[in-house]
Design a binder for these strands. Sequence first.
DNA 1: ATTGAAATGTTGCATATGCAACGGATAACC
DNA 2: GGTTATCCGTTGCATATGCAACATTTCAAT
Lengths: 151, 151
Amino acid sequence: MTQRAFRLDHFLPYLLNQAAERTGSKFEQVYRDTYGLTRTRWRVISHLGTLGDMTAAAISRSSHTEKTKVSRAVAALEAEGLVLRVPSTVDRRTELLQLTDAGRSLFVSLSAEADRFDQELRTALGTDIAARLEQTLRQLAVDALPKLPDK
Amino acid sequence: MTQRAFRLDHFLPYLLNQAAERTGSKFEQVYRDTYGLTRTRWRVISHLGTLGDMTAAAISRSSHTEKTKVSRAVAALEAEGLVLRVPSTVDRRTELLQLTDAGRSLFVSLSAEADRFDQELRTALGTDIAARLEQTLRQLAVDALPKLPDK
DNA sequence: ATTGAAATGTTGCATATGCAACGGATAACC
DNA sequence: GGTTATCCGTTGCATATGCAACATTTCAAT
């Protein structure tokens, strides 16, 4: 019974969390200090910027973010004049969200910085390793994860 | 001026966050539902379990967790009788934290589940890919990240 | 048609979090 | 030695978050 001892620093969920936290908070400095955005607000902006106009529920599903978190971020962004709500005529429960001119202009500059940051990351890791990382992460993020171990 | 458009779903910090969030919340079900632990409490337990007795500040540094977050987790764990504080005689600012018998027993069962979860993850990804992922994540989590792009 | 189930977005409330400030203790420095 | 800076752990407070509940609207089933 050579029982391999549990090692936190080899536990993938922990390593994923650490890597995400460090990388994310590093880039967070950009949109926080320079643009006064929170993470969820940046997430909403970047969704609208890259995926086009969409509803809050769609953003919530696409980003696996609590719908109430999205709702509050949208409210703030609307108050700041960065996002516009267009009530749908077909489904009166929903409203389509779209960037205002100010919102789009913010997205353009911020996404340029994001691109640069991403490039630096990939260069530091090595482009081939970064590409493999991206593929594996997408698998973890999107595809089905293993079921929880049955006890 | 073929400007490559920013794509959120190719942005490494975003993918890292998504993968970490999904993986982490999946395993969180285990320690939350079965053992009533929060993520930070599990983090403290697993640090003490794998790295031995240490101070709150050491846990904070090792896990890149706010010291106030650690402080509160420790207070809760102490109240639940899972962690013991041993004031240091040499440095009277610090207190060494250690698992009680109950705490160690909890760690033993929980780390066994963590091992199983990790194994399932690695099997799902493929063991070689998982090993490469681990190495890359450690690099991102521990090593220096690229400086923020100069504007 | 009608009834029941599900989706959308918001709010209330309890809890979690981040940040600054604090008291106490040690370290650094001159 | 004495002064200053730094470290440890805690607390106060403002904000963020998660979860349940809600009103409204659409969808499903019969």
